[in-house]
Write a protein that binds this DNA or RNA. Sequence first.
DNA 1: CTGTTAGCGCCTTCAG
DNA 2: CTGAAGGCGCTAACAG
Lengths: 351, 351
Amino acid sequence: MDGVLPPRIPVSAVDGRRPRAPVMMDVARLAGVSHQTVSRVVNSHANVRAETRQRVLDAMRELNYQPNSAARTLVTRRSNTIGIVTVDSTLFGPASMVYGVEQAARAAGYFVSVASINTLTQRAVRDAVSRLEEQSVEGIVGVVPHDEAVHALVAVPSGVITVAVGVGSGAAVPFVGVDNVAGAVVATRHLLAQGHRTVHHIGGPVGYPDARERRQGWRRALTEAGAPTPDALTGDWSARSGYDLGRVLAADRAVTAVFCGNDQMALGLLRALFESGRRIPADVSVVGFDDVPEAAYMIPPLSTVKQDFTEMGRLSIDLFVRMLGRPPGSDPVRILLTPTLIPRVSSRSAA
Amino acid sequence: MDGVLPPRIPVSAVDGRRPRAPVMMDVARLAGVSHQTVSRVVNSHANVRAETRQRVLDAMRELNYQPNSAARTLVTRRSNTIGIVTVDSTLFGPASMVYGVEQAARAAGYFVSVASINTLTQRAVRDAVSRLEEQSVEGIVGVVPHDEAVHALVAVPSGVITVAVGVGSGAAVPFVGVDNVAGAVVATRHLLAQGHRTVHHIGGPVGYPDARERRQGWRRALTEAGAPTPDALTGDWSARSGYDLGRVLAADRAVTAVFCGNDQMALGLLRALFESGRRIPADVSVVGFDDVPEAAYMIPPLSTVKQDFTEMGRLSIDLFVRMLGRPPGSDPVRILLTPTLIPRVSSRSAA
DNA sequence: CTGTTAGCGCCTTCAG
DNA sequence: CTGAAGGCGCTAACAG
């Protein structure tokens, strides 16, 4: 990140294998015009006679001409590319958001460059951002659901518009997220409505806005209902942690309802409950969060709070485009989606 | 794809908000050298006195200089970028492979540009490749586990080195994949070894090399063992299809062992069996394929054949680098990993 | 060891 | 409506 580039494979290794691609001048010659006119056609400028335009288009096709984006970027100072910084991109949520970003970015005429990080440190995020900047990206979409990472994101030099997605609802950058509090409230109330005295919670790890907000919502719903608030358990989003913590809950006969911070942990919990002989939902009701594709096929089908990750990714590009049109210092726009409860068997009333 | 670029947000919208970044010349002036010397430092050339080099480095740091990759690409004709074409990138396998590719590409000094497609047609792949070429990528990694898509990939103009990953073991491009046949054989034999008369199969959809090869392996193992070969059922990789087909199998008391083409379908199958009251593994044994993180937490823990997707992604970059060093017409290199059986409860001997 | 010169392919500005 | 000139930021080739 100090400007010194890493060593690279020598040019000689690639040289010669690449037949020089046709350039604008080649097209111009073939069409009998100047390269400038070709440029106009390529960029859909007005002021080109229809017939000339056609000749140029024919020439382009014949030569299989492809504009050189490096040259274009150099002179316009517009790279036409958006960068994505992502963590945990193998998980369904992040992967879906990245997918949504990519689709929308393409539709908006942008290339997409990704930089994934594997440690959740500010430094890692800064490095990723730095690499993206080196490519002169015009915007950065952060799919980084962690406080540290978001903090690093707000520190991005102002030349690049930065938006975040799936980072809770309190970020200091423009973002699109889901209303975690509302989602957790709905889930908890739903459980309470089945007649449970209270609802336990297995939440995500410290430092994750999503985890914090869901815990908040859960606690709020309990308080509002006048139900006792048990200690929340803290997992790490994995099925393993859901299982481990689930064994603790399963051992406690007072536990009759559990709201999990995500579906993976709920999966682990379901197994822990199953193994200890507790019937679901007869003895214990469970609700997850996310609605991963597998949720409907767990044993039993998992009630959960659905969020549309792909759509969120798409919206982040809308957001980016919107920020593009705003004067530099203006307030960050926020888009907050409301998640929906998907009731399935795991929380069905025992009655 | 005809060379005419899509209309873009007017430059005026972004102009002015970007403080002109320092260029090489600025660094040179501050360090009191020519811009060429700066270039030498940036590219780690020899022939720069240590002291001069340090002055330049200091100047770079002070100005927070970042090399402009567009300019660099323009003159070197090397974009330093690798493109990824991907389908179904929200699923664990593809997402992990993409992740592996990104990590390794970065380590090798490359930027990564992604183009995901949502329909498995040759045309979609061609378009994606075309977009990537427009960015002058030096290589393309295809994460496209389908025949049509692979075919489209081999047709990529020879200027760009193309490799594939996770596309079975018969592709006509250099690839890294897993030995599906071996994996399926191991899984099937394992089931047979538990004393089952034969093994049923729920496979992936037509047109997927992975599905085809696993089915082959399954059939081969049965034949070699002299076991009867039931008709294979064909799903679509989803838990839903596993469930639907699983209900059919569950209804047949002769079914005592099932090998599934992937873990999602196995999940659906587990539920279908559970619902029909068949105990696992006492009545029916099940083995999946992939070893997704959730496999160990299903009910019961799913035996499966593990493949290391991330590693495969990484290896595809090794492969790319290796192809770079070979003369143009040379034979495509293939890397085939051997998957490992992970026996868990779902296939434990009833004895 | 360091500086100078000449483009890379394209777009912007200004002429015609 | 079309063409000519100039330069984007950088690196390769050659001087010195």
